[in-house]
Design a binder for these strands. Structure first.
Lengths: 337, 337
DNA sequence: CTGAAAGCGCTTACAG
DNA sequence: CTGAAAGCGCTTACAG
């Protein structure tokens, strides 16, 4: 493995000059630069990142805690997110370091340790929970971070974030359903304790009101778990109580799949008799039949913004609170043919 | 941020002694050790990993290339795998570094670069393909790696691997179905070009023969894509051609879900009229109704073995080719009630 | 059991 | 535009 020193000897310049050739090429005379570059290639030289990091005290590594899930709960878009995050990090010359940590405040010593030992420069948080304690903790410790997702039920956000406008997404789904002739649109939701659920629900309610559609309490159903069974059961209750329902906006693809199953069981055709939409545009959406209309989070953009915020020094006038618009992907479950 | 030097000054010993307190505590007199330990805690000292790595030229980081998937293809157990891999790495004092790379041999410069710049000590490969070029390339470059999955259609494996006995898993599924009274067991597979598919298929065939069950060519159906639609279509063809089929072993959970859908469509009850099994025990398996019997890969053990092989110096007599047995998780789709 | 010293491979003021 | 030198924070023979 060649070192700076060897390259310098080979090119007959000082190590400083080789370093400059790599990090500030404009400082070299073109002929010197070319000579040095040639030696670098010839010796197949690669700067040792550890030496560099030791000197600059920047490791160009970003920590991300791999979520762990209760049994049967899937994170169907995690591979999309990780891929996007990784790509965005690489575009800025960085990489993602994965780690595990206990949920909540118990996990914070792990974050602190990784940062103190200089394994990472900062963190990307996700799976933000209502009253998530991590953000405030990291802020207090002055450890750099950015959050994918707002901290719900806080008056002010405890740090920079990127998030998707769930209310906007659900409102767009309602408008699409209205345009295609639906007039009694139900909402399949999660428990009230979820800030995420309340956000999305509010989008459904606002859009329905705007369009003069009903928003009876009975049209908004809560599922305790994010499973197909729960989605199917809630749909059954909904249709039993109110046979006039002609569309269902589900807060997740999984619940939407449950709705589709219940429709099939009743001999109804999704997209014809009752329209259904999901959320996340997970791989499942395009794999069922009819394919599921779903609200897609712009993963690449999310990842780019996260890395941008984390790696750009705070600039007055540049907001570090960014709300992105999701995209409604229309398929057969809401628009047959 | 405290340094070794500061801790040494505080404890009134040399830096060497502090270093020993951390890395070889048995070398210190108990009272010295205690004094040093106290100073470490008091100053909240954490060794700088970059300095250590520069000195020892080991970064304790393992590279893993995040797979990217064609649209609609999900990797439903990737989060389980990553979580297990991360945990196993941490148990050995290491971490996972994520990166992206082009598929096949085009990606190799990325691997080489990461290793040359000392961002990682070695690699864990997965998503092994038939005639995968990566293994041989890394071996030639003497870059440490271990593979999750054999390289199919090679006579000898080009390096250490951990894999799951797909044939054994499918054979276990067949035996379970036979025990519960099934006598005409079909197999839902992928194209012949997939070594993985041939392995699993061979287990189905061997177990059927052993039990005196039919293995007609018409009982083994190929699906071109791993989608629910394809699984449903193949199941329809199968049942049309051979109404006597009373069980289906599917090579993936997705295809199994397709089979379940087709059974429902025909008014048949999965687990009663026709038994169905899947592969991977993905989160989907427990989310459908009836829940899906599936062949579970032992992710924690896989991850532990991978990290063990990668971090243990080659020892004569210790095999670095490890084939693990999957576990059949029995649910309603093959055993109602 | 403990200490003084060299060196891992870089970057960066500073001087010429 | 280029070079000599210090130093980032560790580990590790070596000597006492």
């Amino acid at each position: 493995m060649a070192t700076l020193k060897q390259v310098a000897a080979h090119a007959e310049v000082s190590v400083q000059t080789v370093s400059n050739a790599l990090n500030a090429p404009h400082r070299l005379r073109p002929d010197t630069l070319q000579r040095v570059t040639k030696s670098i290639e010839l010796l197949n030289y690669r700067p040792n990142r550890n030496a560099r990091s030791l000197r600059t005290s920047a490791v160009e590594l970003i920590g991300y805690c791999v979520p762990s899930w209760p049994d049967g709960q899937a994170h169907l878009v995690m591979d999309q997110f990780l891929h996007a995050l990784c790509t965005a990090a690489e575009t800025s010359g960085r990489h993602i370091l994965l780690f595990t940590a206990p949920v909540g405040v118990e996990g914070m010593p792990v974050y602190e340790d990784l940062h103190a030992r200089r394994l990472v420069d900062g963190f990307v948080l996700s799976q933000t929970e209502t009253h998530d304690p991590r953000h405030g903790w990291l802020k207090e410790q002055q450890i750099p971070f950015v959050s994918f997702g707002r901290v719900w039920k806080e008056t002010t956000q405890p740090g920079p974030y990127v998030d998707v406008d769930g209310a906007g997404g659900c409102a767009a789904a309602v408008r699409h359903l209205h345009e295609t002739g639906r007039r009694r649109i139900a909402f399949l939701s999660w428990p009230k304790t979820s800030g995420l659920a309340e956000d999305r629900l509010s989008g459904w309610r606002a859009a329905c009101r705007e369009l003069g559609l009903p928003t009876d309490a009975s049209l908004a159903v809560r599922c305790l778990e994010d499973t197909i069974d729960q989605g199917a059961r809630a749909t059954a209750e909904l249709l039993d109580a109110d046979p006039g329902v002609d569309a269902i906006v589900a807060i997740s693809d999984i619940l939407a799949l449950g709705a589709l199953r219940e429709l099939t069981r009743r001999g109804l055709t999704a997209g014809v008799d009752v329209a259904v939409t999901g959320f996340d545009d997970s791989p499942l959406a395009s794999v069922v039949s009819p394919a599921l209309t779903s609200i897609r989070q712009p993963m690449d953009q999310i990842a780019t913004e996260l890395i941008d915020i984390l790696t750009t020094p705070a600039t007055p006038g540049v907001s570090t609170e960014r709300l992105l618009q999701p995209e409604l992907v229309i398929r057969g479950s809401s628009a047959p043919g």
